[in-house]
């Protein structure tokens, strides 16, 4: 039964593929996101750029606010809990959230253990910088993976780094001879079975999205061309001059991510993009949380 649930949860991520998941903080924003073509929304009190600006401890959102968003839209609703905070996850499961993001964007509640996600019926998505992190989260029960990127910066460099790292490690595992996989599992600190899966299928055992710093249609298409199966956009939309237009353009860019002519059209007249911060200018690297 447990495995069946995990299978159904991985299946939901398959349905999200080729789509854009948008951060929203109010029912109104959720409706804008849905109308712009979001395949799911992430309900949170403050978008990452504001979490970064506000500082302090950042926690799971008010369930009432999340329920307001669940009522406002017909597409799947996700919400974040802190790394290791299994009670926040229990609460999100109790309000029948469609996906929980055990997220480094919030302050970690546990600096050693992630949540045992196999103990839950609702699916989890987790961030990863490389193949080892991704497979460790999958081993803990994650049904979907996303790059960590560097949330709230509007700077795509870290998402690119993480996606490239994951893809190159997948290619490396894929080209190994079978007797080398045991050592690979040891070095990655993950179970052999998961390494074998990557070797045989040349992909992760779950859907893999890009996240962290995506701000433009070109950023989204870049992540898709690098191998992402879909894209999370956080601060990039509602921190920009024209959220509706930018959101719709990013959705279309993800569907036709190799058509440069169309991408050129989509990139026109989007108004101001979020200002963004370079990675050298930030104090706090969220991507370093939870390995």
């Amino acid at each position: 039964m447990e495995n069946k649930r995990l299978e159904l949860n991985k299946n939901l991520a398959q349905m999200l593929k080729g789509g854009v998941i948008m951060d929203v903080t109010t029912p109104e924003q959720a409706k804008i996101a849905e109308a712009a073509g979001a395949c799911a929304v992430m309900a949170l009190e403050r978008i990452p750029a504001d979490i970064r600006a506000a500082g302090g401890v950042s926690r799971m959102s008010d369930p009432k606010m999340i329920k307001g968003i669940q009522e406002a839209v017909s597409i799947p609703v996700m919400a974040k809990c802190r790394i290791g905070h299994f009670v926040e996850a229990q609460i999100l499961q109790a309000i029948e959230i469609d996906y929980i993001d055990e997220s480094e964007v919030l302050s970690p509640a546990d600096d050693k253990y992630h949540i045992d996600k196999t103990a839950f019926d609702v699916p989890f998505v987790c961030g990863a910088k490389d193949l080892g992190e991704a497979l460790r989260r999958i081993n803990e029960g994650a049904a979907m993976i996303r790059t960590k990127g560097e949330p709230g910066t509007g700077d795509v460099v870290q998402a690119v780094r993480h996606m490239r790292m994951m893809q190159s490690e997948i290619r490396r595992i894929g080209s190994m001879s079978e007797d080398e996989l045991f050592d690979a599992a040891k070095l990655l600190q993950v179970p052999y079975d998961l390494v074998l899966y990557v070797h045989e299928h040349k992909k992760l055992p779950v859907v893999n999205f890009a996240a962290g710093g995506v701000a433009t249609p070109a950023d989204a298409a870049l992540m898709m061309q690098l191998g992402a199966e879909g894209v999370f956009v956080g601060s990039g939309i509602f921190k920009s001059g024209n959220p509706e237009k930018r959101a719709a353009a990013i959705v279309k860019a993800v569907t036709n991510f190799t058509d440069a002519k169309l991408l050129a059209e989509l990139s026109e007249d989007l108004g101001e993009a979020m200002v963004g911060i370079n990675e050298q200018e930030i104090q706090l690297l969220m991507a370093e949380r939870g390995k």
């Binding site: 398959q14 349905m15 999200l16 593929k17 080729g18 789509g19 849905e34 109308a35 073509g37 979001a38 395949c39 799911a40 017909s74 597409i75 799947p76 719709a248 959705v251 279309k252 569907t255 036709n256």
Partner: peptide, 15 residues
């Protein structure tokens, strides 16, 4: 295919 009908319906029209 499966996915979100709102997304596919919108893109069908706009494309």
């Amino acid at each position: 295919p499966g996915g979100e009908s709102t997304v596919q319906g919108k893109l069908l029209r706009e494309l």
